[in-house]
C-alpha cells in the first residue's frame, strides 16, 4: 500500500487505531458485529485517521487524546461508504462484494446507522461540544452535497460554482476536518488550526478533481474499475464542464451526457469528446493550483517529519493514476 510510505511516522499508532476499532466494533448483536467487522476487514487506507494523527504531530501530540477522534472520523467515513453503496447500488468495493450485495439494503442501512451511533459514542467520550458540533455540521453538509449531486445529475447547464459546492462537501470538508481536529485536540492555536484545515481542504478538492479526471482518462486495469462511471450516472464533473463550455463537440456531448440511459458506445464517444476538448488538461491545472495551495499552507508550520510526509502526500494525490 503506497499510503504506508506517508504514514511511516505514525504507523505504530495507526495500528493501535485499527486494533481499537476492531475491539470497539465487536458488538452484542451477531449480525451487526459480523457486518461491522466485515467492513473493517475490507481494509480501507485509513487516510482520515492518518491525516488527524499527522496533523497532531505538529503540536502537543497525545495519542490517547486523539485516538477517539481518529476512530470517530473513520467510523463516520465507513458509515458514509456503506450508505453510498446503497445509493449507487454498487456491488463491489475494493474488490470485495459490498454489504448491500451480500446482505441487502436494509442490513446495509442499519449497519451504517449503527456505525454513526458508535461514532457518536466516541464523540460523547471526547466531551468537547465544539469538536462534536464541527463534526455534526460536516455530516450535514456531506449529505447536502450528495443530495445536490443527485438532484443535478444529467443537468448539462451546471457551472463551476455548483461543481465546487458539491466536491467541497463530498470530499474536501471531511479531509479538512481530519486535519483540523488533529490540530485542535493537540492544543494548536487558532491560526495553526486554520492552516491545518486549509491544507486538508485544498488537498480534498484536488483529490476529488483527480478522481473525476481518472474516471475519464485512467487505465481501467490500473484504476481497478471501469471508466466512465460518472458519465453513466450523469454526474457532471470538472473535465465535463470544461468540455461542455468551449469545445467543437460540445453540442454532441451535451446530448450524450443529458441522456439518462446510454449505451456503452455512447459512453465511449462521450469520453473521447472530453479527451479531445482539452477538459482534462484544464482540470489538471486546477489540481496543480490546489496542490500548490495545500503545500504552501504547510510552510507556515515547523519543519518536522510530518510536514515532509504531508507534502509528499499532496504531491502523490496530484499525480496518482489510481
Amino acid at each position: 500500500m503506497k499510503q504506508q510510505k506517508f504514514f511511516k511516522e505514525i504507523a505504530s499508532d495507526l495500528k493501535k487505531v485499527e486494533k481499537e476499532l476492531d475491539r470497539f466494533l465487536k458488538v452484542n448483536d451477531p449480525i451487526l458485529s459480523q457486518t461491522c467487522i466485515y467492513l473493517l476487514q475490507a481494509g480501507g487506507k485509513r487516510m482520515r485517521p492518518g491525516f488527524a494523527l499527522l496533523s497532531a504531530k505538529f503540536f502537543n501530540y497525545q495519542f490517547e487524546k486523539i485516538l477517539p477522534v481518529a476512530m470517530a472520523l473513520e467510523l463516520i467515513h465507513m458509515a458514509t461508504l456503506v450508505h453510498d453503496d446503497v445509493v449507487d447500488a454498487s456491488l463491489t468495493r475494493r474488490g470485495r462484494p459490498t454489504l448491500a450485495a451480500g446482505w441487502g439494503n436494509t442490513v446495509s442501512i442499519s449497519t451504517g446507522n449503527y456505525l454513526f451511533a458508535k461514532a457518536l459514542e466516541l464523540i460523547v467520550k471526547i466531551d468537547n461540544t465544539e469538536i462534536s458540533s464541527i463534526l455534526a455540521k460536516v455530516c450535514i453538509e456531506m449529505c447536502q452535497g450528495e443530495i445536490q449531486q443527485i438532484k443535478f445529475s444529467f443537468d448539462v447547464e451546471q457551472n463551476y460554482k455548483q461543481y465546487f459546492y458539491r466536491i467541497q462537501r463530498k470530499t474536501a470538508l471531511l479531509i479538512g476536518l481530519c486535519c483540523k481536529l488533529g490540530a485542535m485536540v493537540s492544543n494548536a492555536n487558532k491560526r495553526q488550526i486554520w492552516t491545518m484545515y486549509r491544507y486538508g481542504h485544498c488537498l480534498g478538492i484536488a483529490f476529488q478533481i483527480v478522481d473525476d479526471i481518472l474516471d475519464i482518462s485512467a487505465n481501467p486495469k490500473v484504476l481497478g474499475k471501469p471508466v466512465g462511471g460518472d458519465i453513466r450516472q450523469g454526474i457532471i464533473t470538472l473535465p465535463i464542464i470544461y468540455s461542455l463550455k468551449d469545445s467543437p463537440g460540445s453540442e454532441r456531448l451535451k446530448e450524450l451526457i443529458g441522456k439518462e440511459s446510454k449505451s456503452e458506445k455512447e459512453i465511449e464517444e462521450a469520453i473521447e469528446l472530453v479527451k479531445q476538448s482539452g477538459g482534462i488538461e484544464k482540470s489538471r491545472r486546477i489540481v496543480d493550483l490546489y496542490i500548490d495551495k495545500a503545500v504552501r499552507c504547510l510552510f507556515e508550520l515547523p519543519d518536522i517529519l510530518s510536514r515532509e510526509a504531508l507534502v509528499e502526500l499532496a504531491q502523490f494525490v496530484g499525480k496518482r493514476s489510481y
Binding site: 458514509t80 450508505h83 446503497v86 445509493v87 447500488a89 439494503n105 442501512i109 451504517g112 446507522n113 454513526f116 457518536l120 459514542e121 464523540i123 460523547v124 461540544t129 462534536s132 458540533s133 463534526l135 455534526a136 455540521k137 455530516c139 450535514i140 456531506m142 449529505c143 447536502q144 450528495e146 443530495i147 443527485i150
Partner: peptide, 29 residues
C-alpha cells in the same frame, strides 16, 4: 432508493448537532 438514504443521514446529522448544545449534551449517551 437514493434520497431516503441521504435524507435519513441528514437527519442523523441534525440529531448530533442538536445534542451538541451544552444543556442537551449530557443526554447524548
Amino acid at each position: 432508493r437514493q434520497y431516503p438514504v441521504l435524507v435519513g443521514d441528514f437527519m442523523f446529522g441534525q440529531i448530533y448537532l442538536k445534542l451538541c448544545k451544552p444543556d442537551l449534551f449530557p443526554y447524548s449517551g
